[in-house]
Structures are given as structure tokens and as C-alpha cells.
Amino acid sequence: MLKDYLLPASVDEALQNLQAYSGKAAIIAGGTDIMVNMAEGKVSPEALIDISRIGEFKQIEEEGEFIKLGAGVTHTQAARSPLIREKALVLAQACREVGSLQIRNVGTLVGNVVSAQPAADAAVALVALEAIAEIADLQGKREEPVEELYAGIGACKVDCRSQLVTALRFKALSPNQGSAFKRLAKRKALALPMLNVAVVLSLKEGAFEWVRIVMAPVGPGPVRATASENILAGASVSPEIIEKAAAAAREQAAPRDSALRGSAAYRRDVLKVLVRRALQDAVSQAGGSL
């Protein structure tokens, strides 16, 4: 049961609070995950440390070639940010798909990452953007790719007893680059994804310079479709190569049968379609033609 609720005004204060409770406090940002987990008895911290009052956490900024999102940036903010819509569309698209507007208005992108659910839409897009998480503790700051933070279903490598993710950072896309997010769900709002796919790619002289394809939920966290990425890297843009890459994603993915998300066989078949469609969108965004 909660005995206290803290509203630190700075990162340092939040970290002090964490230390003071030595593992018995939990961080709350939007609260859309932890409130449900607490109600279901899955976690029962003695105190909540609410980081939503830390001023710099609300910022979306361009820092050189990077876009930086504070730990308090919500899905609504990201989905509607002109900067993200222009230079990281995949993330705006992914954030728009989460839950409902009420959820998006409070749920944060960092929360989406640290909850470490296998098909968290924003996290899938962030992995495709090769986003880096800034992690602070009382000893200092370090950086870690979002992709590396997964330690199993619902388990994040960030030690929430002493550490805080303070920001996310990724490279803004340039005009020869494109991105897209595709999602299969049983309804258009308030729906768990049956599948989601994020693609970020770069074109150079009619060929794929590099491609990052992330798919979920086909593993404990977002999964890079490495085979597909390799097929595309350096290859000329063509419908045939895209089809081949999509087929490779299907082969690599290992979804599980799920009463809520559909059978493994079905989702593998549709995954191929989503990967192909995401690639097509991203190519056309990057100025390529098919």
C-alpha cells in the first residue's frame, strides 16, 4: 500500500527520493501502466515518485542532427509534434495508435519503453529509429540503445530502484530517408496490436543505403528483421526486392499463438504484408519510386 507520493522538481531530487526508499518506491510518469499493475496487485510500492513536474522532461527539441524527447513527453505530444511528423513520421504514426486519446494524453514514450511490453507501439518505432535512452543515477549519466533495454517480457534493464530514464534521442531523418508504421489490430482504438511493424530507411541513387525493420510482438521485445534488412541494404529499389525482404521477415518471425492476438501462422502471413506495405510507404516518403 502507498504511504507517500512525491513530486520531485528535478532529476536529482527524483534520484534522491529513489535512494531514500531503497527499492520500495516506484516511478510514475503518466501512470497508465503502473496504476493498472497496482490495482491488479502486480506491484505494491510504498511510495510513488511522480516525475511529471520535472520541467525539462516535457520538451521535444532538435539538438543538431538529433531529436531529443524528455522523459515526460506524452504520446499525444509526439503524435502531434510538427517536428516529429516531419523528421520521424514513424514515431508520430506509432504514437497515434496507442490506446485512446485519454491514454495518449498522459502515457509517456519513456514509460512505453521501460514497461518493456513486447508490442509497445512507440518503443517499436523508437527501435527502428535507433533511439538512445539517457539513463541517470546518482553516479551520473549513461546512454543505452532502446533496443538493448529488453531483459524479457515486461522486464527492462533500467534498474528502476535507482535509475531514471531522462530522455530519448534519435537522428532526425533527412529528405532521402523515409519511415512508416503499420499495425494490425481488431479495432481502431483501445486495441492491443496483433502485429506492428516499423520501418526506417535511407535511399541513395535509387538503392537502399540502409534499412531498419522492427517487428512485434514476435519476441520478448521489438525484434529487428535482420535478414530482411540485409537483403535490402545496397540493393536497388524494386517491388521484387521488397517482396523478398518481406518474405524473409515472415521466415524470421516467431510469434506465438494467442487468444487475443491471433494464431502464429496467421500473424506470420500477415507480417509479410505489413512489412511490404511499410517498406513501400517509407520508400515513397524517401523520394523513391516503385
Binding site: 485512446s100 481488431k186 479495432r187 481502431k188 482504438a189 483501445l190 486495441a191 492491443l192 487468444a259 487475443l260
Partner: peptide
């Protein structure tokens, strides 16, 4: 199209919450 409660082999409902049971929303 979407509404269905399925029970698993032990007879447990797999669709026992609004986020699992697919009522259509305004966007559908």
C-alpha cells in the same frame, strides 16, 4: 466481426476485460 468470448482448456475466459473484448469504437 469482432465480439467473442473464448474459454481456454481450463474454462477460463480469455476475454474478461474491455481491452480484450472487442466492442467497436467510434473510430470503427
Amino acid at each position: 466481426l469482432s465480439e467473442e468470448v473464448i474459454f481456454d482448456r481450463e474454462g477460463r475466459s480469455q476475454h474478461d476485460a474491455y481491452h480484450k473484448y472487442m466492442l467497436l469504437t467510434a473510430e470503427d
